[in-house]
Design a protein around this nucleic acid. Structure first.
Lengths: 155, 155
DNA sequence: TGACAATCAATGTTATAACATATAATATGG
DNA sequence: CCATATTATATGTTATAACATTGATTGTCA
């Protein structure tokens, strides 16, 4: 039996409303997942944010994406995209070049080493996903996905 | 109609599994909520983390709580509790004193000013909660709360 | 009791996030 | 075609997060 959020956070009083409870539930659950993901990635020397960028660039393929496009696709909004990409470039996981078509853009692409690290971390990432979500029924998963989409949409 | 997460993040490929989609859905939704909350609190000069601490200390009342107890109750784990409390103390929103019973502990309590700011931010915080979750049915809210509890539990 | 382990908080340090502003390139309107 | 606005990235700075270590206090048990 899963513990109630109230018990989990040792709250002396019940939530004032179901809306508040759901709000905190989402934030709390994400914090747990982010922490687990972070621990799983640690041995490989990358953070969840960096992992996210690498997956985005893998999806973009050889043509790559510019900083603004990467920012749009990230799970969590990040200010200071240039310096985040700096770090990935220093690690040789991505490459950057100015777009000759529009010299304002800097196109980032994933390197072979970036692809290798994505392959390497995959079992650990999958394990975290399965550890937390593997026992939920298909129906529950779909309910979560749809409910959360409605929350983001505010409708 | 809520947009799919795939569309929202401009992904070219569908999620490999419902588990992955639910995993990212939770992280993405929390990022949206955290951002909205952060913006709502900004005019008052406090962050979501600080807001969380103040609510915890309000719940604890005059007896207060020590750093470890605060950490246990936070929605997101924070390392470096002492310096987070330093900032709140500098803002005069909390007070700290060494527990004479056990001099290892430092008991933090919320100040009158801390209580005032909690009252002041409440309409803004409620507005964010309602904007995102206000249109969801009771049944959907309960489904989310229970589903997310199962995710945290891994069962 | 006295050594040792465990618990908390504080501190030193580095890394990253966050914010404001600047620089460069392109688009737009007269 | 020039002045201006807009877009994109870069940079300077400060604040906070994250991590490791230290110091002080208390608990445990031989």
């Amino acid at each position: 039996m899963p513990a109630s959020l109230q018990t989990e956070l040792k709250q002396t009083r019940p939530f004032p409303s179901r809306i508040s409870e759901a709000f905190v539930s989402i934030l709390r659950t994400a914090a747990v997942l982010d922490h687990q993901l972070s621990e799983a990635l640690r041995p490989f020397g990358i953070t969840p944010t960096q992992h996210n960028v690498l997956r985005i660039l893998r999806g973009a393929g050889a043509s790559g994406l510019c900083g603004r496009e990467i920012a749009e696709r990230m799970v969590a909004r990040v200010p200071d995209v240039p310096r985040m990409l700096d770090r990935l470039e220093t690690m040789r996981l991505i490459g950057r070049r100015r777009d000759p078509e529009d010299r304002r853009h800097v196109t980032a692409t994933i390197t072979a080493r970036g692809l290798e690290i994505l392959d390497a971390v995959r079992p650990a990432v999958d394990a975290v996903e399965r550890a937390r979500l593997g026992r939920l029924s298909e129906r529950t998963l779909v309910g979560l996905i749809e409910g959360l989409a409605a929350v983001r949409d505010g409708a």
